[in-house]
Amino acid sequence: MRTITHIVLHCTACPQSATVASILNYWRQELGWKTPGYHIIIPPDGCSQRLVPDEQVSNGVAGHNARSLHVSYIGGVDGQGRPLDNRTPAQLAEMERIVRRWKAQHPNAQVVGHRDFPGVTKACPCFDALTWWASVTRK
């Protein structure tokens, strides 16, 4: 079993109308990735889809994947492509469910956003993951 030090939250930085298939195709065709960027992706309806088993490494944050689990919501930009936290209530609920499950399995793992890693210049996940997780754990 891998030692997990980070549970990383992402957005796809594309319109919420994007499909999982189109995102997978982009990674394969445009980026040349053999492995998806996230373990789980959450469309606007909240029906998450498993892309990579937790036991395997995904392509979420360069240099940090061996010890990370990655979850993303589809969205994260406005109509002009600017960063925006536009998670639907269903995405919010599903992200919380997934992170709570992973945190129970890996209690020492930190919940962070992609943008929280050194050298990352992206706005991803377009919200403050640390603040969000703190608010979730106060419930």
Results as ranks from 00 to 15, higher is better:
26 Y>K: 11
23 I>N: 03
11 C>E: 04
27 W>Y: 11
87 R>W: 07
131 T>L: 15
123 A>F: 08
139 K>M: 12
75 G>T: 10
70 H>A: 03
1 M>W: 13
123 A>I: 00
32 G>D: 01
75 G>K: 12
103 K>M: 07
11 C>G: 01
24 L>C: 06
50 R>D: 13
117 F>T: 00
41 I>W: 01
23 I>H: 00
96 E>P: 00
126 C>W: 01
98 I>G: 04
115 R>I: 11
134 A>Q: 14
119 G>K: 09
6 H>N: 15
12 T>A: 07
103 K>D: 02
34 K>L: 13
65 N>R: 06
118 P>K: 08
81 G>S: 04
99 V>N: 08
2 R>E: 07
115 R>H: 14
64 H>K: 04
46 G>M: 04
29 Q>M: 13
69 L>T: 02
76 G>V: 03
44 P>K: 02
68 S>R: 03
92 L>G: 05
13 A>R: 12
27 W>G: 06
78 D>Q: 09
52 V>C: 06
72 S>D: 01
113 G>N: 05
90 A>M: 03
114 H>V: 08
117 F>N: 02
79 G>N: 10
54 D>P: 13
78 D>A: 11
67 R>N: 14
126 C>A: 15
72 S>L: 00
64 H>S: 03
77 V>F: 05
15 P>T: 07
96 E>L: 05
6 H>L: 05
44 P>C: 03
85 D>R: 12
10 H>P: 03
12 T>K: 09
58 S>Y: 04
82 R>C: 12
98 I>K: 03
53 P>T: 06
94 E>R: 14
19 T>E: 02
47 C>K: 15
80 Q>L: 12
78 D>C: 04
104 A>N: 09
36 P>S: 04
44 P>I: 02
107 P>F: 08
73 Y>V: 01
5 T>H: 09
108 N>P: 06
122 K>S: 15
48 S>W: 11
55 E>K: 08
127 F>M: 03
40 I>K: 07
